[in-house]
Write a protein that binds this DNA or RNA. Structure first.
Lengths: 341, 341
DNA sequence: GAACGATGTCGAATCGATTCGGCGAATCGG
DNA sequence: CCGATTCGCCGAATCGATTCGACATCGTTC
C-alpha cells in the first residue's frame, strides 16, 4: 500500500501519482481521476515518515508541559486544550513532552531528533535551560510565558504584574489597607517562576504607591494547602482584610479557612485573583478575578509558531494579555470602611 | 549533521556508525570511542523520520482524547498524565489527538498515516466508530474504557457497575431508602457512553435487590449544572436522603445546593461517588468515594499497548478496576434511621 | 511548414537512517 | 604451517515519499 503500488495499478509512474495528489504539476483530468479511484479503493495514505524525510518537515509541533506528576492547573489545562485545538485546525499534530526531572530525555528527543517543526513551551522560568537549549538548537519555538530576557524569543504571556497591581488598587479603592499576596508553591517561585516574581513585583509596587501594608506568602497548588496557608496567615496577621492571588488551585481552600474562622466573603474579607474564567465562575462564591483568555492565548501561540516555522528569520513577536478584572462576588468594602466607598 | 558526516569525520563508513550506536554488530572499542567522540562534539542525533522509515516503527503512541472543547474531568486528566508519564519512561513519545466533531481529520491522520505504532483510546462509547476503524486498520490499540463487545480489544476500565452497586449497598446499609443516581451529561449518556449505562445498570440492580426506591438523572459536567440539577431533584423528590454519582465535576455544585436547602452533609443527606482520589480528598467535605487508580490504569494501558505492538497476535487482555470505597465525610446514617445501623 | 511554447508524463536522484552480504586480516586448532 | 573461524569494517540496497530534468505530443504562430 505505498505510492508505487498505486502507480502500478493506475498504470502511471510514481511521480505522476505524487503530482496528482499535491497538484504541484499539472496532471490531466483523466489520469487524475483514475489515480484517485485507485487510491480510494485501496485506502492509501502517504507514509508520514517518508514524507517527513524528503520534505524536511513533520507537520507536527511539540508541546512541552510541566512534569505530569504535578497536576495541571485549570489555566494550564486551558492552554493545552486551546493549543491542541488550534493545531488540529491547522492540520498539525501535537507531540506532548513532559519536561523537568526525569523526563528530560523526552524533551531532548523532541528538540534534537527533528521530530517536530517547532515547539510551544509552557511554565517557563526566568532563567530557563530549555529556552537556552532551544535557542541554541535553532528550532522555532514560542513560549507561553517568558524568561528574564524576553526579547530573544516569541511569546504570549499573562501580564501578572499589571493584573496584580490592578487587584491591589481595586482592593485599596474599597478601603482595604492590610493585604496579602498568595503566590504559587514555594519551589516553583524559588526556581524562578516568572509569574510568581512578576506578581511579587506588581504587588510591592502597588502597595508602595498606595501606602498600604502587605505580606507575601507562597502556597501549595491545591485546596488543602490553600486552607492551611490561610489559617496560618490569619493567625499571624489578624489585621488582614483582603488577599490578592495568582494561585487558582488554592482558592477553594482559602474559602474554607475563612468560613471556619467565621469570616464571610466579601463581608469580612475580600479576595481578588487571576484565574481561568471557567474556574472563577464555577467557584462558590464566584471569584472576582482577571479572566485570563487561555483559549485565545493558546491559539495565538500556535499562530506565532506557524509564522516562525514558515520564516524563522522574522522578528520575534509578543503578546501580553492583561484583561480587566471581572467583578464577581468576592470583593467588597473593607470592614469598618464602608464610608470610604 | 547526519550519519554520513559523522562517518566521514570519524574515518569510518556510515554502517559502522550505525552499528556503534545500536550495538547490533560488534565494533572495536577504539573505533566506537572515536565515533562517540565525534558525535558528542557535533551533538548529532539520528533523524527520527529516516529511522522510522527504515525501521517501520515510530517509537510514538497516539493518545486519543475527547474533543478539547469540553473540559477534561480530573479523572481523565489523571489518565492523560499517567499515560504520558508511563510512555516517557518507556522512551515513547505521545501524539495527542482530539477526536469527535470537527477533529476527525486528526484522528484519521493518526490511524492511517503510520504516524504512531499504536493508540490509546479514551472516552469510548458502547458502539464506537473509532474502535471499528482501529480494528479495521489493524493498528494496535488499547482502550481506557470498552465497547459493548469487549472481547474484541484490549482495555483497562473502571467497573462502574460494581462500584455504583457498592455505593448503593453502602447507603442502604446506613438506612437510606430513597436514592438518586446522578449520571454524566445527557448527550454523553445518550450517545452510548459506557460508564453511564453501566452505572445505571448497577444502580437498578442494587435498588431492586435491596427493595429501595431510586431515580436517575443526567447532569452537566460542572459545578453549576450540579447545583441546579440537585435543586430540581430535591424539589421533585423531597423524600431523597442520599445520592450516588459518577459525575465528579458536579459534586461541589451539589454540596452548594444542599447547603442552600439547609441540609447538612452527612447529617441530613449522604453522597457517595466514583472519583479520582486527589479530587475526592480535596473536596470539602471530602467525598466518600471509590478511588479510581487513574495513575496505575494509565500505566497499565501503556504496558498492554507495548505488548500488543511487540506481538499483535497475542490474546487481548483486560483489566477491570473496582477499588473499595474510601469512607470519608459524606455518608452517614439516614435521618430517622439511626437505630438501623 | 518550421520553430516554439504548453502540457502531461516518466525515470532517476534524493532525504537519512538500517541492514545484509562479503571481504581482508587476525586468530585458532591440529 | 595451513585451512577454518572469528572479528571488524565496508559498500550497496532499502524504506516511501518528493522533485528535477528530460522528452514526447500537441497546438500556435509567423
Amino acid at each position: 500500500m505505498n505510492i508505487g503500488e498505486i502507480a502500478k495499478r493506475a498504470g502511471v509512474s510514481r511521480s505522476t501519482v505524487s503530482y496528482a495528489l499535491t497538484g504541484r504539476r499539472p496532471v490531466s483530468e483523466e489520469t487524475k481521476r483514475r489515480i484517485l479511484a485507485v487510491i480510494d479503493e485501496l485506502g492509501y495514505r502517504p507514509n508520514a515518515a517518508a514524507r517527513a524525510l524528503k520534505e524536511g518537515r513533520t507537520r507536527t509541533i511539540g508541546l512541552v508541559i510541566p512534569p505530569a506528576g504535578q497536576r495541571l492547573t485549570d489555566m494550564q489545562l486551558g492552554f493545552v486544550a486551546s493549543v491542541v485545538d488550534a493545531a488540529a485546525r491547522a492540520d498539525l499534530d501535537v507531540l506532548l513532552s513532559p519536561s523537568g526531572g526525569e523526563h528530560d530525555r523526552s524533551f531532548e528527543r523532541v528538540v534534537t531528533g527533528r521530530r517536530v517543526d517547532g515547539v510551544i513551551l509552557m511554565e517557563i522560568r526566568l532563567e530557563d535551560d530549555r529556552v537556552a537549549r532551544l535557542l541554541a538548537s535553532g528550532l522555532p519555538f514560542v513560549g507561553i510565558g517568558r524568561t528574564r530576557h524576553p526579547e530573544d524569543m516569541s511569546w504570549v504571556d499573562v501580564d501578572y504584574e499589571a493584573l496584580i497591581t490592578k487587584c491591589v488598587h481595586h482592593l485599596a479603592d474599597l478601603g482595604h489597607r492590610q493585604l496579602a499576596l498568595v503566590n504559587r508553591n514555594a519551589e516553583l517561585v524559588a526556581a524562578g517562576y516568572g509569574p510568581g516574581h512578576r506578581a511579587q513585583a506588581g504587588f510591592d509596587r502597588a502597595i508602595a504607591e498606595r501606602g498600604l501594608h502587605g505580606v507575601q506568602v507562597c502556597c501549595g497548588d491545591d485546596a488543602q494547602a490553600g486552607q492551611s496557608c490561610l489559617q496560618q496567615l490569619l493567625a499571624e496577621h489578624p489585621e488582614l482584610t483582603a488577599i490578592a492571588t495568582i494561585n487558582e488551585a488554592a482558592v477553594s481552600g482559602m474559602y474554607r479557612a475563612l468560613a471556619e474562622a467565621g469570616l464571610t466573603v466579601p463581608g469580612d474579607f475580600s479576595i481578588a485573583g487571576v484565574a481561568a474564567r471557567h474556574w472563577a465562575e464555577n467557584l462558590h462564591p464566584p471569584l472576582t478575578a482577571a479572566d485570563v483568555p487561555a483559549d485565545e492565548m493558546g491559539a495565538r501561540a500556535v499562530e506565532l509558531l506557524i509564522q516562525r516555522i514558515a520564516d524563522p528569520a522574522t522578528a520575534h513577536r509578543h503578546l501580553l494579555a492583561a484583561p480587566p478584572i471581572s467583578l464577581r462576588s468576592t470583593t467588597g468594602p473593607a470592614p469598618g470602611h464602608r464610608r470610604a466607598i
